[in-house]
Each structure stands twice: as structure tokens, then as C-alpha cells.
Design a protein around this nucleic acid. Structure first.
Length: 327
DNA sequence: CCAATTTGACCTCC
DNA sequence: GGAGGTCAAATTGG
């Protein structure tokens, strides 16, 4: 394999990993800042910028892939395993035979029953929720199979299943619900059911001959009116993502910085005793200290973890940014 | 032409 | 009977 391609793949992998890490840490960081809406908004805004930039960078890098072979994007940690044997899939020959003689109604009822069993199982450990601004890029290929207006929500819920369900019997599904908030960009709740057994992450093994139509991998772009920013050169975007996080260090008051980089609960130190004066521009007009909550042990642990992870993330992104200067 | 998406109907559960 | 989830015919678009 040519060195340039190798390098590109490494770069893609690195960006993808940082992207995924930021995405995973989001809820923790928000949890950490839940006591202050302005700080939460700031954290959300900065993380959103970083995620969006990295996401676009990834998309561009994938599009610029020189070889027709799709890139291996480890956006999510996928263990490379053989797909489940057909016999274990719901579309096993036996079931196919019985479906052939069943009426459409019977067939549907049967499928419904089997999916209900899945529903019961998924409450154990095969269901999890993710909050993200980029529901359309999680490293897997999904096919939309339904959309529903859910009571009490302003937005419809979209249902997706693994593109390779028919080929491999992969039972992974997800549904995406835009949250009722005025946040910009919008926040989505993505509920995943069942892990992928198809071994088809990000088209890395998209050797299926069903590729006549271009795989969008972004079904929500259309269905949820998501507009990606116009693509720019990947290194620029990574630097942009890095910059999006930089303000945490550069533009905040020392007190605000400490609230992000050091858990409030660990300090319990009033703003006035911070090491330097609060002369730099303030994000919002409010005092940064008058909302210190009394945190319980779990919240303290979460805050400490969020802080630690944020530091690691920040460091990683910083290194990544430096490495992209040579890219 | 054919695969993906849309959308109304249908199904099960509560 | 309502809500949430899925199916499948019709439509869309590369």
C-alpha cells in the first residue's frame, strides 16, 4: 500500500477517534455543567463546533479517498467478527420457507411478534442512548424504514435498521429523535438497539453489490433537514475543531476555566479567591460562582471524571492538530 | 433500472 | 383505544 494512502488512513482514523471520544464525553461534560445554564450552553456550543468540524473533515477525507476501496473508519470500536450464521438470523431458510406460505398479514404478525421479543431483550443490555448533534455519522450504514410522530414532541422520530440486515441478519436498529430545544445546532437523542453483527462499519466492507446507488450514510440529512457546512480542506477543519475547544482556555475568566478544567466539587473555592482577577471577557453577565451546587458523591465522581476526560481530550486534540500541520 | 426513502396502514403492547 | 414500532407499496433519484 502506498505510503500516502497509509498516512491518510491513519489521519482519518485519528480524527475519527477524537471525534468519537468527544461525542462520548458530551453527556458527562454537560452533566458536569448542569448547574449553570450559561456554562452548559458554552460547553455545548464549543463541543458542537468541534464535533461539526471533525465530522465535516471526516466526510471530506472519505470523499477524497483516492482508491475505490472504502476507508476503514473506526468511528466506533467495532470488533471484526464474522457475521452471524444465517441459521441464527431471523431470515433463516426455515423461516423464509414458512413466510412463503403465509399471508402478508400472517407474515407481518409473525415478524411483529419476533420484534416484540427483541424489544423485551433489549431492556437488558442491548439498548443504549446517545445524545449528539451528528446523528447521521456514527460509522455504520443505516437504512430508514419508518418515521413516526411521537406524542409530546415537536419532531418526528425516524427509525433505522442496519443496511446489511438482509445480507447478514444484523439486528442493529436505532431511532433518532430531535430534542425539543432551541439549541443550535439541534441536539438529537439516538437510541440504539442491538449491536451490529454485520461487520460493516462505515462501509469498510461495503463490498455488497448493492452499491449501485450511492450510500449516503447520512439518511438524516434529508429527513431532518440537516445542512452540513460546505467542505474545506481537512487540516483546516481539524485546526478549526481544535480552535473550537481552545476558548475554554483562552477566553474564559480564570474562574470559568477552573469550573471546566477542575471539578467544582473538588475545589469548593469561591470565585473571589481565584488566582487572578477576572479581567478577561465574560461569557455571560452572571457571576460565575453564585450557583455552586452542593454535589453528592455520584455527581462529584462524574464531575471529576468529566474533568479528567476533558483534559485528556484536549491534549489529544492538541497533539492531533500539531500532527496535521505536517499532513 | 434498481436501491433508498417516504408514508400510510397495520400490528402489538399497555 | 392510543402509542410506539414495523411493513411494504409507491415514489424518488443516481
Amino acid at each position: 500500500m502506498p505510503a500516502a494512502t497509509d498516512e491518510r488512513e491513519r489521519a482519518v482514523a485519528e480524527v475519527a477517534e477524537v471525534y468519537e471520544r468527544i461525542k462520548i464525553q458530551q453527556p458527562l461534560l454537560f452533566e458536569f455543567h448542569h448547574h449553570s445554564s450559561s456554562h452548559q450552553q458554552l460547553a455545548q456550543s464549543l463541543l458542537s463546533d468541534a464535533l461539526r468540524a471533525l465530522n465535516v473533515a471526516l466526510s471530506v477525507m472519505k470523499q477524497q479517498q483516492p482508491s475505490p476501496a472504502p476507508a476503514v473508519i473506526p468511528i466506533t470500536s467495532v470488533v471484526v467478527v464474522k457475521a452471524e450464521p444465517r441459521g441464527l438470523s431471523p431470515r433463516s431458510p426455515a423461516s423464509a420457507d414458512s413466510e412463503a406460505i403465509a399471508t402478508p398479514t400472517e407474515r407481518r404478525a409473525k415478524k411483529r411478534r419476533s420484534s416484540s421479543v427483541m424489544e423485551g431483550n433489549k431492556t437488558s443490555s442491548s439498548s443504549w442512548v446517545d445524545f449528539t448533534i451528528v446523528p447521521y455519522e456514527d460509522g455504520y450504514e443505516w437504512r430508514k424504514y419508518g418515521e413516526k410522530k411521537i406524542n409530546g414532541t415537536s419532531y418526528t422520530r425516524s427509525y433505522f435498521r442496519c443496511t446489511y440486515k438482509d445480507d447478514t441478519g444484523c439486528l442493529a436498529t436505532k431511532h433518532v429523535q430531535q430534542k425539543d430545544s432551541s439549541s443550535d445546532p439541534p441536539l438529537f437523542q439516538v437510541t440504539y438497539n442491538n449491536k451490529h453483527t454485520c461487520n460493516n462499519n462505515a462501509g469498510c466492507t461495503a463490498t455488497t453489490n448493492s452499491s449501485k446507488r450511492v450510500m449516503t450514510n447520512n439518511p438524516l440529512n434529508a429527513s431532518m433537514n440537516i445542512k452540513l457546512e460546505p467542505p474545506v480542506l481537512p487540516p483546516t477543519l481539524v485546526v478549526q475543531a481544535y480552535s473550537a475547544l481552545c476558548p475554554l482556555d483562552q477566553t474564559m475568566t480564570p474562574c470559568q476555566q477552573e469550573q471546566i478544567s477542575i471539578p467544582v466539587s473538588m475545589q469548593q473555592q469561591p470565585c473571589g479567591t481565584a488566582t487572578s482577577s477576572t479581567t478577561s471577557s465574560s461569557i455571560s453577565g452572571e457571576s460565575c460562582c453564585d450557583e455552586y451546587p452542593v454535589l453528592n458523591m455520584a455527581q462529584m465522581a462524574a464531575a471529576a471524571e468529566a474533568s479528567l476526560r476533558y483534559d485528556l481530550l484536549y491534549e489529544e486534540l492538541s497533539i492531533l492538530c500539531d500532527s496535521f500541520k505536517c499532513y
